[in-house]
């Protein structure tokens, strides 16, 4: 029995490795996976391939090929900036899911969310994730700012990136605040009422800003549409632009700040 099984297993193994060779050797495969991809034929762990992994990937090439050794220490950055960005991606993904089931009118918004939670597969879970990660992102962005300050990482040549970072914190707050109204429940309505009343006290143009944001003198269905557009389109769009500048400046200013 054992004699028969072993050759059979070996033959299978040979066939499999042959198949792997064929697939990895095909033109289609090697056109998809650029040199340095760990899926490419003949990938081995060499300094050249380690560089190629970063250079030849549209996502990873946000990073330099090499970083200072202390920059990879989790105890220095606590991953807070990266986690904020990752939470933003997570919020985009869950937010797109929510958009399929939501209409931003006073007559439909609340019902849509009720339906989403009770009748749509994973609807409740995805909404929960969207809300909790939003709160979490406000927290991580805030902590990231504190971390950067305590490390003195805003000092030359990184002054301007700090300014961009403070702007990003404000966009994060605005994104969270505009999303707060969308469920159109008692919590949303009155939290936003309190918030926008504060806005009205801005000198000179406070009333005008409030009017433009609310689409009227009071919160209503027009407000919902405006905040929805701000929340799903305009603010994320502006935030991504600032994010691009933020990441780009991190590299241009010489990578993350040095050890203390």
């Amino acid at each position: 029995m054992a004699d028969e099984k072993k050759p059979a297993g070996q033959a299978l193994q040979e066939q499999l490795s042959q198949l792997t060779d064929q697939v990895q050797g095909s033109q289609a495969w090697s056109s998809i996976f650029r040199p340095g991809s760990i899926f490419r034929k003949g990938y081995n762990d060499s300094p050249r391939n380690r560089s190629y992994v970063i250079m030849n990937s549209v996502l990873y090439h946000l990073h330099p090929v090499k970083v200072k050794r202390h920059a990879v220490k989790v105890s220095y950055t606590l991953c807070l900036g990266g986690l904020s960005f990752f939470l933003f991606i997570l919020l985009t993904v869950t937010g797109i899911f929510l958009m399929f089931f939501y209409r931003p009118t006073a007559a439909q918004a609340w019902d849509d969310i009720q339906t989403l939670q009770t009748a749509v597969g994973f609807g409740l879970l995805v909404r929960n994730m969207h809300r909790w990660t939003a709160h979490l992102m406000v927290l991580t962005v805030f902590l990231h700012m504190a971390r950067v300050f305590y490390h003195g990482a805003y000092k030359p040549p990184r002054e301007f990136n700090w300014v961009v970072g403070v702007m990003l914190l404000q966009f994060t707050l605005l994104l969270s605040f505009t999303g707060y109204l969308l469920p159109w429940d008692q919590l949303a309505l009155w939290a936003v009422t309190v918030g926008t009343n504060m806005m009205g006290f801005t000198p000179v143009f406070g009333e005008q800003v409030r009017f433009v944001l609310l689409g009227g003198v009071e919160i209503g269905t027009d407000t919902l549409l405006r905040w929805y557009t701000l929340h799903v389109l305009m603010l994320p769009f502006v935030l991504v632009i600032f994010l691009a500048v933020h990441f780009w400046r991190v590299r241009k200013d010489g990578g993350i700040s040095g050890p203390l």
């Binding site: 560089s51 970063i54 990873y60 990073h63 090499k66 970083v67 920059a71 990879v72 991953c79 990266g82």
Partner: peptide, 15 residues
């Protein structure tokens, strides 16, 4: 200096 792959990407992935 160290290579970003695997030293940094691994930490980021785990986080």
């Amino acid at each position: 200096k160290v290579h970003v792959w695997p030293h940094l990407l691994l930490a980021e992935f785990l986080a």
